[in-house]
Design a binder for these strands. Structure first.
Lengths: 104, 104
DNA sequence: TATGTCGTTATCGGGAAGCGATAATATGAA
DNA sequence: TTCATATTATCGCTTCCCGATAACGACATA
């Protein structure tokens, strides 16, 4: 119902969100999914992984495999290109959000 | 490139944006598209109209035809259901935006 | 060696969404 | 009647979403 609107918002927002986190510290899929869920948002791996892959393919993220307790994780961290994209997009997104929404 | 990120954001945001505007005053497609463009965002009718239709189909918008200088316009205005959805979604969207993004 | 376990990542297939291109509509003007 | 124009509608292709399912890789156990 109305939650569809919030979900759309989240989905449109998620790449920025990922880049933002990957800028703070390396992030891997499972953890990211869990953190979203803690905040009440459930995004399937069928959605999440292709997004990570695309961000990497486009040069916004770089990946490094690590073996943690016998399990392989792919830690994604932001690249310079990703940082630039994030900063510029962030500014525009905020502008959009404020200008067209919080003007009341 | 990086604009893809902003575009995704806009697309996820657009239903809320439409509802917000339709709450201020009745809105029609052409005008809405032009206003977006003035702000630098180009969204095709092939994207826009189906969104209007869906919002109407789901009861968030109601439509009224008007003849303006010999041309037919479909003015969309928000319903009570749409208002409720907007308010609740807006709160959550702001929460998401702030909490997960502007925390630096 | 072989098998099992488990956290994690990867992919498939069907349905929905995005979008450029094109058509349809309705009215007033010529 | 025909034309021009503003506006809305739809088609077909591509891409995206996402639940379900598979695959992987290292360690443990025997």
């Amino acid at each position: 119902m109305a939650d569809e609107l919030v979900r759309d918002f989240l989905l449109g927002f998620i790449k920025l969100h990922i880049l933002y986190h990957a800028k703070q510290e390396p992030v891997f899929g499972q953890e990211f999914k869990n953190e979203l869920k803690r905040h009440g948002y459930d995004i399937s791996f069928g959605t999440l992984y292709p997004i990570f892959h695309k961000l990497q393919r486009n040069g916004y993220l770089k990946v490094e495999q690590k073996n943690v307790r016998g399990k392989i994780r792919k830690y994604y961290s932001i690249t310079r290109k990703g940082t630039n994209a994030l900063e510029r997009s962030k500014a525009k997104a905020k502008e959009l959000f404020d200008e067209l929404f919080m003007t009341e």
